[in-house]
């Protein structure tokens, strides 16, 4: 069951990654990156359940916080303010 979920998550991240590669402008790439981090966090939590490792939850929490800060920084940088 969990393997099927992980397969769907993998397909979703591949779709977002294709948009990140194709994306005509920098904004499209950052949007794809933002969504890719969200998808990856959910995938990490699923992996943690699959392997029964509590540490994956901590990793996904920190990953979520850092990706939020990173995307905000990129958005401000794109705007020219920083």
């Amino acid at each position: 069951m969990i393997w099927i979920f992980l397969g769907i998550v993998l397909i979703a991240s591949i779709l977002a990654a294709i948009r990140g590669v194709l994306g005509p402008t920098a904004s499209d790439r950052i949007i794809a990156l933002d969504n890719l981090t969200t998808i990856t966090t959910a995938g990490l939590v699923l992996l943690g359940y699959l392997f029964q490792r509590y540490i994956y939850i901590d990793v996904s929490l920190i990953y979520g916080v850092l990706s939020f800060v990173g995307v905000l920084t990129l958005a401000r940088y794109m705007e020219g303010g920083l």
């Binding site: 979920f5 979703a12 779709l15 977002a16 969504n35």
Partner: peptide, 17 residues
């Protein structure tokens, strides 16, 4: 809940695409 969540993750990625 997990299957609903996974389906919407997929739809979100499809939307971006």
């Amino acid at each position: 809940l997990t299957s609903i969540g996974v389906i919407f993750l997929f739809l979100g990625a499809l939307g971006i695409f």
